[in-house]
Simulated assay, not measured.
Amino acid sequence: MLERILDDEIAHVRFGSTHFIALAESRGESAESFWKMLVARRFQGAVKPPFNDSARLSAGLPRSFYSGVAC
């Protein structure tokens, strides 16, 4: 059951990251810089590890996106 949940979450994150990257590129912005700016502007608190880096990477979200904003 946990494997199924993980697979579903990877697909969910892949869907969001694909569309977010396309949006950033359509605005002429770096997706990574745009995401970090939005986190800094809109998110209260800290983005806290641990992260499942390999699952996030397979979903299209490289560690560089969130490493600079995690505490």
Rank of each mutant, 00 (worst) to 15 (best):
G16V: 01
A31I: 09
L6S: 13
H19M: 11
W35A: 13
N52Q: 11
D7H: 11
S67L: 10
P62Q: 01
G68Y: 08
I21D: 09
R41G: 09
G68E: 09
G28P: 06
A55D: 06
D8C: 05
F43M: 15
G60N: 00
N52D: 11
A55R: 05
A40N: 11
R41W: 12
A46F: 13
F20C: 03
P49E: 06
K36F: 03
D7I: 10
H12Q: 08
L57R: 12
K36D: 01
S30Y: 10
T18H: 11
I5F: 06
R63I: 10
F51S: 07
G28H: 12
V69S: 00
I5S: 04
P50E: 06
A70T: 08
S26N: 14
G45F: 09
G45Y: 05
H19A: 09
R27P: 04
S17K: 11
S17H: 04
R4D: 07
F65S: 02
R14T: 02
G60K: 02
M37H: 15
F20V: 00
S33R: 14
S58E: 11
G16D: 01
S30A: 13
S64G: 05
F65Q: 01
S58F: 02
H19V: 05
E32S: 12
V39I: 15
H12R: 14
Q44L: 08
K36S: 03
A70E: 04
E9K: 08
I10F: 06
S54T: 07
I21C: 14
A11L: 08
A40G: 15
K48N: 13
P50W: 07
F43A: 10
R27A: 11
S26K: 15
H12K: 15
V47L: 13
H19T: 08
P62Y: 03
P50Y: 10
F15P: 00
D53M: 08
K36Y: 05
F43H: 12
Y66T: 01
H19F: 10
R4Q: 08
F51T: 05
R4C: 00
L6W: 08
R56K: 07
R56N: 14
A55H: 04
G28R: 08
I21R: 15
Y66I: 05
V39E: 04
S17M: 15
R42A: 11
R63F: 12
R42M: 07
R56Q: 03
D8Y: 04
P49V: 02
M1Q: 03
F20L: 13
